[in-house]
Amino acid sequence: IGSLMYASIFGNVSAIIQRLYSGTARYHTQMLRVREFIRFHQIPNPLRQRLEEYFQHAWSYTNGIDMNAVLKGFPECLQADICLHLNRSLLQHCKPFRGATKGCLRALAMKFKTTHAPPGDTLVHAGDLLTALYFISRGSIEILRGDVVVAILGKNDIFGEPLNLYARPGKSNGDVRALTYCDLHKIHRDDLLEVLDMYPEFSDHFWSSLEITFNLRDTNMIPGSPGSTELEGGFSRQRKRKLSFRRRTDKDTEQPGEVSALGPGRAGAGPSSRGRPGGPWGESPSSGPSSPESSEDEGPGRSSSPLRLVPFSSPRPPGEPPGGEPLMEDCEKSSDTCNPLSGAFSGVSNIFSFWGDSRGRQYQELPRCPAPTPSLLNIPLSSPGRRPRGDVESRLDALQRQLNRLETRLSADMATVLQLLQRQMTLVPPAYSAVTTPGPGPTSTSPLLPVSPLPTLTLDSLSQVSQFMACEELPPGAPELPQEGPTRRLSLPGQLGALTSQPLHRHGSDPG
Rank of each mutant, 00 (worst) to 15 (best):
L130F: 01
L130N: 04
L130H: 03
A132S: 12
L133P: 02
Y134A: 02
I136C: 07
S137F: 04
S140K: 13
I143K: 01
I143H: 01
L144H: 08
L144K: 09
G146R: 09
V148T: 13
V148W: 08
V150F: 06
V150Y: 09
A151N: 01
A151M: 04
I152L: 04
L153H: 01
G154D: 06
I158Y: 04
G160V: 02
E161T: 02
L163V: 10
N164Y: 09
L165T: 13
A167M: 13
R168G: 13
G170S: 07
K171Y: 09
K171E: 03
G174I: 01
D175C: 09
A178D: 01
L179N: 03
C182L: 05
C182F: 01
L184M: 08
K186R: 11
R189P: 03
R189E: 03
L192S: 01
L192T: 03
V195I: 06
P200A: 05
P200G: 05
P200I: 01
H205W: 07
W207A: 04
S208T: 12
S209F: 05
E211W: 02
E211D: 09
T213Q: 03
F214P: 01
N215F: 02
L216H: 01
L216T: 02
T219V: 14
G224I: 13
S225H: 10
P226I: 10
S228E: 12
T229L: 08
T229R: 09
E230H: 11
G233P: 09
G233I: 08
G233L: 10
G234K: 08
F235L: 11
F235H: 13
Q238G: 11
Q238V: 10
R239A: 11
K240P: 13
K240V: 11
L243W: 14
L243E: 12
L243V: 10
F245T: 14
T249K: 07
D250I: 15
D252T: 10
E254A: 10
E254Y: 07
G257L: 11
E258H: 04
V259A: 14
V259F: 11
S260G: 11
L262C: 10
A267I: 08
A269L: 08
G270E: 12
S272L: 12
R274D: 15
P280Y: 01
G288K: 12
S290K: 12
S290Y: 04
S291D: 11
E296W: 09
D297S: 11
D297P: 12
P300A: 08
P300E: 07
P300V: 05
R302D: 10
S305L: 14
R308V: 10
R308L: 07
P311E: 08
P311V: 03
F312W: 08
R316T: 12
P318Q: 15
E320V: 13
G323L: 14
M328S: 12
S335A: 04
C338Q: 15
C338T: 07
N339R: 12
L341V: 09
S342T: 12
V348A: 10
V348K: 12
I351F: 07
F352I: 10
F352E: 04
F352H: 14
S353L: 03
F354S: 11
G356D: 10
G356N: 05
D357C: 04
R359V: 08
R359G: 12
R359E: 08
R361W: 14
L366S: 08
R368A: 13
A371T: 10
P372D: 08
L377R: 09
L377S: 13
L377C: 07
I379G: 04
I379D: 06
L381D: 11
R386V: 13
P388T: 08
V392G: 11
E393S: 05
S394I: 13
L396E: 13
L399V: 08
Q400K: 15
R401L: 10
L403S: 05
L403W: 04
N404T: 11
L406P: 01
T408Y: 06
R409N: 14
L410F: 15
L410Q: 01
D413F: 03
D413T: 01
V417W: 01
L418K: 15
Q419L: 04
Q419T: 11
Q422E: 14
R423H: 10
Q424E: 06
T426L: 10
L427V: 09
V428S: 08
P430R: 13
P430G: 10
A431M: 10
S433H: 10
S433L: 08
T436Y: 12
T436E: 10
T437S: 10
T443R: 15
T445C: 10
S446R: 08
P447G: 10
L449A: 09
L449C: 02
V451L: 09
P455R: 11
L457W: 12
L457Y: 09
T458V: 05
L459D: 08
L459Q: 11
S463V: 12
S466E: 12
Q467W: 03
F468H: 14
M469A: 08
E472F: 06
E473L: 08
E473T: 13
L474C: 11
P475M: 13
A478N: 04
A478K: 12
P479W: 08
P486V: 04
G494K: 10
G494Q: 14
Q495D: 14
Q495S: 10
Q495A: 10
L496Y: 06
G497A: 07
A498H: 09
A498F: 08
L499I: 10
L499P: 11
P503T: 12
L504M: 15
L504N: 11
H507P: 10
G508W: 11
P511R: 10
P511A: 06
G512M: 13
G512S: 10
